[in-house]
Each structure stands twice: as C-alpha cells, then as structure tokens.
Design a protein around this nucleic acid. Sequence first.
DNA 1: CAGCGGTTCATTTTT
DNA 2: TGAACCGCTG
Length: 754
Amino acid sequence: MSILDALNPAQRRAAETINGPLLVLAGAGSGKTRVLTYRIASLVNEIGIAPWKVLAVTFTNKAAGEMRERVQTLVGGLASDIWIGTFHSICVRLLRYEAEGFGLDSNFSIYDEDDRRAVIRRVFKANNIDERELTPRQVIGQISQAKNAMLDPTEFARQAGEAPGKRQMAELYTAYETELRRNNAFDFDDLLTEVVHQFNRHPEILKKYQERFEHFLVDEYQDTNKPQYMLCRQLSAHHRNICVVGDDDQSIYKFRGADIRNILDFERDYPDANIVRLEQNYRSTARILSAANAVIGNNQDRKGKELWTEGPEGDPVKVVECDTDRREARHIIDTIRRQTGSGAYGLGDTAILYRTNAQSRPLEEELQRSGFPYIIVGGIRFYDRKEIKDILSYLRVLVNPIDDVTLRRIVNTPRRGIGDTSLERLQIFAQERSLSLFAALEQVDEVPNLGGRATKSLSEFSSLLRGLIAAKETLDLPELGNEVVEKSGYREMLREENTPEAEAREQNIDQLLAEMTEYFDTNEENSLETYLEEKSLMSSADENGEEGNAITLMTMHSAKGLEYPLVFISGMEENLFPTARAVDESRVNPQAIEEERRLCYVGMTRAMEKLNLSYALRRYAYGNMIECEPSRFLNEIPTELIESSSEIDRGFARSRQQRGGPPARKVKPVPKPTPKGVHYEWDEPPQVTQNAAEFGEFVDSDDFLAVGQWVRHPKWGRGQIVEREGHGEKMKLSIRFQTQVKRVAVAYAQLEPA
DNA sequence: CAGCGGTTCATTTTT
DNA sequence: TGAACCGCTG
C-alpha cells in the first residue's frame, strides 16, 4: 500500500522516479499538482526523507500556498519544514539568511515597478535625458532584459561596444545599479540574479544548500528564465535529484524573459534524464481537447504531446460572430444567463477570458447592466493603492532608512511644505558628503540655502522618523502601523480632506491595519521585516480570497492553471489575438505567432464543459471603430468540432435563438468587405432598462439590495453595493458609485436595480 | 506649490 | 477612449 496507489500509471511513474533528473511533461489538466504533492508526500512519508531536505519551487504565491496545503493534508505537520515557495521568496530567504556571508545588509528594500521608475527618472535627471527621446519604460525594459540575460552593467557595456544607443543604455544601466546599491535595494530581477551571482562567488555557501536539498522540484518549468534556470542547475548539481514539471505548450511568458528552450533542452542539460508524459486529461470534454490539440498542433517548436480523455464527447465548440464588441459582450452575458438560469451552472462556474485587459471594458459595462456579480482578476492590487503604498513606505524607511527612493515618497506626504526645491538642496548636501537623505536630515541645520520654514519642516520630519524608529523596538507590528498612521498625520490629512474619497482611503488604511493584526496573530515569523517582504512579493491574484458566486473576468495569462465549466474567450480576432505585433513579426518570422498560439491553447484548455469563442466584426479601439477579421486560430479548429452562429442583425438573432429556432449557421464566416474610411455613426439601439423581473431569474428580486448588486440612485447614477447594515426601514447601504463610495439610507434613497 | 488644461500614449505581466 | 504626465499659471 502506498499513497501513490491513488495515481494513474504515468502520474505514478512521475511521482516515484525519485533518483536522478526527471522531466515531467504535464499537459493541461493532467494532474500536475497532484503529481507534485504526492511525490513530496511519498518522499517524506514513505521514503523517509527529512522534510527540510526537500525544496519545491513555484512561480506564484497561490501555487505555493496550494501545494503546501495539499502536502499538509497528506503528511500533516511535517509539511511546515519543507521549503515550498516562489522563486522570488526562496531567493529573498537565501539572501537574508546568508546576508553576512554574502556581504549584504539584510534590511534591503525590494523595489517594485513604481520604485524602478522613480530611480530611472532620477537617473534621467542626473544625465540630462529628455523623456521624449527615451522613455523610462524603454530603459526599464532593457535593464530587465539584461538582467534576465544575466548581464551585469560591465558585461552589458562590453557587448554594447561602440553603438551609441547601446552605450547610453549601458551608462544608464550602470547608474541605475549604482543607485539601487546605494539605497540598499533590489528589484525583482535582482532577487534571482543576486543569489546566482553570490552562489558563484561563495561556493562554500552554495555547497551547503546543494547538499541540503536532496530533492528539488520545480513547477511550471517552461516559464523559467535564465537566472531561474541557473539557480536550478546550481542547486541540483550535487544530488541531481531534480524534478521539473511543465508543459512546453503553455509557455506564455517569453516577453518576461521566460525561455522555452529550458524545457525543450532539459534532456541535453541532463542526458541521463527520465521523461514522463502526462497526457490523460481529467478536465475537458473530448471535443474541447480535440479543438485545442488541433490548434497547438500548428506549432513547430514543441516536444509533441496529445491530450486525451476517457470523458464524454461534450458539446461542440461554439464560434460566434458578432457585429460589434458590445454585441459580443451582450451575447456572452445572454448565454451565461441561459446556462445559469436553468440551474445547471452557477455564476462561479463561468469565466470570460480575453487577450488584453482593455477588452474587459464593454464586458464590464454590459455586466453592470445585467446585474450579474462579477470579479475582475488582475486589477490594481490593494497594495498598489496610493494610501497603502504610502503607509508601507513609512514602514520600509524604518527598516531601511538609507532608502532615499522610498523616503522621497513620504517626505511630503502628508504635505509638510517640503517642496522639490528644498529637497534638491538637501539632496545636493547629502551627495557632497555621501550621505543618505535620512542621514542628511540629522544635519539639516548645516544645509546651505534652506529657508527657515523648510529647515523646520525637515527637522520635524527627521524627528518623526527617529521617533518611529525608536518605537519600532518596543511596539509590535500592528501597533507600529497604527503609530505611523497617527504620528505621520496621514489619518488627520484624510479626515481634513472631508470627502467621500478620503473616507474610502481611510477605510483602506484601517483595513491595512486590520490585516497587520491578522498577520501578526497568525504567523510565527511576524516581524516587520517579514511582513514587508511578503507584501512586496504579493500580486493582485493573491488577494481576493473567495471568488464566490460571481463571473470571473481575466486575461488568458491570468487564467493559466485555473479551470471553469463554462469558458468564453472573447475577441478572437486577427491583430488582437494574435496581437498586431505578433502578426507583423510573423511576416519575417513565422514562429512569432507560436507564443500567441500557446496562449490560445492555454485559454481553450481552461474549459471543462463548454467553450464559447467569439469575435466582433467591428470594435472600438482607442476611441474609434475599427474593422476586424476572425482570428486565424479559429480556422485551425476542425469544422466538425464547431458550431457557428452569428449575432449581427441588431436584436433579432437573440430572440430567434431564445425561441429555440436554429441559430444562423455559418461555417467559416467571411468578414464583409467594408470600404475603408467609413465610420459607423450609429451605435447600438438604446438599452431597455433592465427590470427586477428580468434579472429575477437569477437573483431573488426582493434582494436586489444585496452586497454586490448594482443599483441606480437618482442623483448619483449607477453604483455597486459594497456593504449593508440593518434591516427593513433602517437599512443603510454603502454604495460605490463611479467616483466615490456613498452611504445611503434605503428608506429615503429611491434606489432601483440597474 | 497646487491646480488646470493640453498632449501623448497605449500587449500580455506569475514576482 | 482615458490615464498619465507635462508645463503653465495663480
């Protein structure tokens, strides 16, 4: 008897081949996570490997959390000793544990994209670079690429040679790095490259970990970049028990430095590698799989793999032609209404996927009209909100006071009358003496050219920070958070503003403080440092706890790893999906389309039971209507798997379908040629206001005041209920309108469903 | 030094 | 279309 009895033969081989390198090619829905967790459980429980000798690396916090949880149910408390984490979190851990040996200050800050930009802009300023000749975005992109290629500034400069553009870039890169080091900061890319470099410089430290991690597992190997790849090689060099799991057909992060060759060349890197293919799919119907297989079959650069299932044939893949993006949105929602109305599916079973975030717009607008609750994955992170970042910046400065970039963020927030001019003077003073801004503040009286007012403000700010740093020693995390909010004057500032927006921001801060308390109470390692580290490495996807009973909207990138019974992919159009860029590039390099095709494959294989692909003939792009053609990927699906229909004649197609008549059948719809330059002045016919009865099919009509519902207020327009208090006549609601959150009393406000 | 209006610019984004 | 950002003005 073994816990591995629960696996199918291929999965079992993947889980029990524990000696030597192993490549697990795991197709979508083939039980990849199951293999990983059972493998770990078997190592620990049945083979008797000490849990701390096992290292498992994933890409997302979510995946790491799930893995830990699932391992825990199999092995219990031992799970807490296993190293499971994202590449980034594992690297941060290594950098902190080995800070001394590596010669680092363990209080380093972790810079996000905003911080990076702030650094670059300062570098621009110092080098007199006009943002019109070169954008920060471009520079950050190049630096990131360089880091992903493991090129340090010196090496980058050497390769740049004499080319003027490259030389300038090399200088900027150098300046950027210098700036980061000076601030004791790492950016996301550094977290990985730094560990690899440090391991190269300190083989004795590397050796310690090589010997320790007897078993090493890597998830989503197809998305590893060069530093991640090198880290894998370094850490597995001694025991060579490296198990990588991935799917070359799902490699969709090339634009971020992921190199599909890492998985394609695994056997070259480890000639003695075993390979296991997981091709049995437990997720999708046979038709969906055949369609997805057919599409991905057009790629050249792949290991080759064909998913199969013992499950049912299922419905044909629906392909729907719509006249506009708006119509497409409405069609999708109508379909969801039909599917969920019969009770066969819940809203939570439904996902609408798209290529770019901008496409969510018409969908959102129509969803608001419909009254269906929905969530959008990948919006702005809670931790990216200004007020939250500000408070966290205070905390960051307390840990790493020499971090000028972060200090600048808070020096005049709340307003203290410290403007650019005063700050520049302080900066010059600091620079001349090689001091951080924080250190310069201590000698603010000696800074030349500072007015009395500015000096006073700066010195007060300095005392504030010193006071908080002292408080850090005695207060616990939530207490310190509260101290920052109060002593900095942040709460007072929001109070004085006295607007609903400020009130909402204050509520966010309270939520942050509440989360700190929770973090402090539930984590064993609950220091300020670990807290900040965790928040820095968190993404928006890690936040929304419960999806609940709502339709999910997201990009296909965000959807990787997820599954839904009902999946809609919208915007199946040339120049949108595949993107215009990929289409252009494919004219010189036909392979350029392959990453898009993999993304299509990822999108399609999210569907368990019903897959609905749609495209519009015209859509709004940057404010004007443009003509569209159906995506080439649609043509790659065998016609016998497809059921086509169209939604073009403004309002009639839908009623025909609802009467049960046959949908307009059309196999490969050819877009109607339209003379160029024609603008479509008309829009959709005016919307009939949705009444309670109409959406009463799905929502208890008495309960249109439930949290999450959309309502119309005579003065404020449409808004979504975010909170409900009290009952009957006394019921009060917080409603988020376009720009603000309002509290209204139901008895007085004339609310109607919207 | 904050508030405004005009200009520019737009993939995907696990960390 | 809209947000983000610049430079100007009071």
